[in-house]
């Protein structure tokens, strides 16, 4: 029987892509990666409570900054992954680039949401308002909306090739907002601080928050990407085993990815 390759370790997949031993090793490495990420989060939270000094001007609410900034940078990185994957798809027309872009797009939305939410708590305490239409806040909201639309339009396009092309072009254009978010505070007068001077202990705390937040972002993109690949492979396998379904349905099935 000519079985279609899957990612489950059965059938010809092993011969084509690896061995069961390699799969087990990779599963162990993935587990270790998530355990290290979780442990780092516990460590930096303890550091925040026990070590990080309280800001004399703003008080304890200034500590939101240690989550807010790394999440913002990670969100930009996720948007950059969408950009690179979109360019990669248009260049090579390989579907795995599209799966990567789809995975990073969802993570970018999530991180943008967390940027906005943590920023709102900061703003309420520092400026007395939950939201103000300052350039950086506005461009950040636009960034969130751009990637939310990116995630929402993907399932509405049936043809896999059309969806990949449209989303790749959109992913490249959407990324143009990232430099605007970064530069707006330097080019336009803004209530949002462009830089904050930190004591050495505060700087160390800020640096300590970057690895776990970036690792979490990378882990999410990797996991979502693995799910996307699995879904695409399962769809392709199902329809190649049912030739009577016809080419028309095959096109539709290939389009059925988040």
């Amino acid at each position: 029987m000519n079985r279609t390759p899957t990612l489950t370790g059965h059938g010809p997949w092993n011969a084509r892509w690896g061995t069961v031993g390699m799969q087990r090793l990779s599963a162990h490495l993935v587990r270790a990666y998530w355990l290290v990420t979780a442990a780092l989060f516990v460590a930096v939270i303890l550091m925040l409570v026990l070590y990080t000094p309280v800001d004399r001007g703003m008080g304890p609410v200034q500590k939101i900054f240690y989550l807010h900034l790394p999440v913002a940078i990670s969100g930009f990185l996720a948007a950059f992954v969408v950009f690179i994957a979109s360019v990669g798809y248009l260049w090579s027309r390989s579907m795995w680039w599209d799966d990567l872009a789809a995975a990073a797009g969802k993570v970018a939305v999530l991180y943008c949401a967390v940027i906005l939410l943590t920023g709102m708590f900061w703003g309420r305490s520092a400026w007395g308002v939950w939201w103000t239409w300052s350039p950086r806040l506005t461009f950040s909201l636009v960034l969130f909306l751009l990637y939310a639309v990116y995630v929402l339009i993907r399932p509405t396009i049936d043809s896999a090739e059309r969806r990949a092309v449209i989303c790749a072009v959109y992913g490249i254009i959407a990324f143009l907002d990232v430099p605007l978010v970064y530069l707006s505070v330097r080019l336009i007068p803004d209530i949002h601080p462009s830089s904050i001077s930190l004591e050495p202990a505060m700087r160390l705390s800020l640096l300590a928050w970057f690895p776990p937040v970036v690792m979490l972002m990378a882990g999410m993109i990797g996991t979502r990407y693995a799910l996307n690949r699995r879904l695409r492979s399962a769809e392709a396998g199902r329809f190649s085993e049912a030739p009577s379904a016809g080419a028309a349905i095959r096109v539709s099935a290939a389009g059925g990815h988040p």
Binding site: V71, L110, V114, F121, G219, M220, L227
Partner: peptide, 27 residues
Amino acid sequence: GQAYLLLAYIIGLSLLWGYAAALLLSL
């Protein structure tokens, strides 16, 4: 300020780890 700080971290980390957990369970 302490309450804002607590809420920001609870909401932020719940969203991030909630999504990560959902992805891992799906996989």
